[in-house]
Design a protein around this nucleic acid. Sequence first.
DNA 1: CTCTAGATCGAAAGCGCTTTCGTTGATGTT
DNA 2: AACATCAACGAAAGCGCTTTCGATCTAGAG
Lengths: 338, 338
Amino acid sequence: MITIYDLARKTGFSSTTVSKALNNYPDVSKKTRQAILDTATEMGYLPNAHAQSLSTKKSWTIGVMFSEDNQIGMKHPFFSAVIESFRKHAEKEGYDLILASRNLRNRGSSYLEHFMYRGVDGIVVICSDPNDPQVQEMIDASIPIVVIDMSNRNCSVVFSDNLSGGALAINYLYSLGHTKIAHISGEPSIYAGQVRIQGYSDAMKKLKLPILEGYLVNGGMFSIEEGAKAMDKLLDLKEPPTAIFVAGDHMAIGAMEVAKKRGYNIPDDISIIGYDDIEMASYVTPKLTTIKQDTDSIGIRATQLLMKQIIQKKKIITEEIIPVELIERESCKRLKKK
Amino acid sequence: MITIYDLARKTGFSSTTVSKALNNYPDVSKKTRQAILDTATEMGYLPNAHAQSLSTKKSWTIGVMFSEDNQIGMKHPFFSAVIESFRKHAEKEGYDLILASRNLRNRGSSYLEHFMYRGVDGIVVICSDPNDPQVQEMIDASIPIVVIDMSNRNCSVVFSDNLSGGALAINYLYSLGHTKIAHISGEPSIYAGQVRIQGYSDAMKKLKLPILEGYLVNGGMFSIEEGAKAMDKLLDLKEPPTAIFVAGDHMAIGAMEVAKKRGYNIPDDISIIGYDDIEMASYVTPKLTTIKQDTDSIGIRATQLLMKQIIQKKKIITEEIIPVELIERESCKRLKKK
DNA sequence: CTCTAGATCGAAAGCGCTTTCGTTGATGTT
DNA sequence: AACATCAACGAAAGCGCTTTCGATCTAGAG
């Protein structure tokens, strides 16, 4: 490894001047700067990030944490899409992402501790569980942070407009003539789940539509299997709904599966609308109509919010709500008069 | 931030002894070690990773790079699944992953340079393009590295058994009575694409099956759209195949789409078998029969190989081939006698 | 009682870089 | 000719930690 001292020796200047030249300090002449830069590339000099960080207290890294309760972590399309967007934009600002483990070389420790240990400049967490103690700990710390996919009054958050999303779905279904509209919800202790339930019931109320007994069924952690189970319950009702708003595409796909299995035709017998717009939504049969989350914008806004905090060196508390969009495909249909 | 000097002051020992106590050196008495450890937790001491790395030349980080030619990066299910598996296992060994950008704070630089700058202990790259100069540069360097999804004679590689995969698919199709078997391939300049073509033609030859004119069509970069285009070509043939081995699930799904659109029934008219076993494969209609890549094992083996190199402090050159598996679902069917 | 072998501990240098502050020499002013 | 100004550079301390090597002290050996 070649250091600024090597450059100093070679060029005849001091290490101080070399460092300054490398960092564009004003008090070094054009000529010497150029000489130093030249021999730097000539000798293949590369700065040492650790030394730099140690000295400057800035690491140009951002810690990313996502809840793994669901055991899928990065494999969930929504998560990976958001992270990817975040990464792209953070990269433009010069930051690297570090995916942290929790164990400080086998002395277990919290994510916060681990991030402090790593000296990250900021943290981004993708988590929907408002009660996760790890997340709380990070939020309560003084380090810049932005959390995605849930709300919190003590930090910057960015999430989709789940309320309008619910309304969008219900109003669309209503516009197709449906009135018996059920909701397969996400786990209510999860932020997105809870708000989408709210969006559903608000919209129903505004439309003066009754929520029939059993029409609100908890689909749990958004998985395909749980969506299927929930759908079973709905179809077991004496008076099954003609349309269902499902709080996640995975669940919606599970729901469609059982519907088909039980002899229902989607959308002829039942209309289904999902939430997320994962890739798969466009390729199941029938293609899933859904509320699209703008993962790209979410990543962008999150980056911006985090950058701002890092630069200003203070946490900023704000709530950024990203609009959602109705994507019409094939799983919803006008209710046929009987 | 509280340092070992703070601990030294508080406990009355020297910083040397504190450091030793923290690192389990043998030449510090049980009693003092305990005292130091106690005040450490009491004062909320956390080591500084940068200082440690600077001093020890070990960063406990691994750089990950994946080719982004296809513009999807982490969003591809195969990539994200492999990374996730790798992360889990590297984490157990105490390593963090760093997703690197290429621009050294706006002086653009190569991935290798960036990883050297960051002082990673090893590199994992997921890339299928044997000609990517960035990847070559890293392979040629002396840093421990493992590359996933392609072959190379100068480093550790781990990839799926694409050859057997191809044979598996063809033999399966043949066992169903098919003889007019086509192949929608991946871009031949991509390793996986090329080997699967090889697997296809080898198996056909062994079965003494002819590869008819136009039966081998290049599907390009494995996307749904390109799969669809390729399928169009196949269906335009005077004598379309009765079965198609498609080198990737995305392409297979695209192929099924156009087949359906053009009035063919899958699998009654044409059998289709994919490659990868992405999540979506189980939920399209008909459910896609496919060759499953064992992303979990790939991640595990890659971790092990990298760890080994890091510990031994020397590159090891080896080729780890992970078995694939035929997953029978609904998109293939016994050829009906005419 | 002297000597040696451990057992504990600490001084100090070093990892590679930044940054403050002072020094030097040249230029311009009057 | 004396002075102030400014541009260009370097000495040195500091960031937090590791590690070598020597110092000290105690206990057991002879």
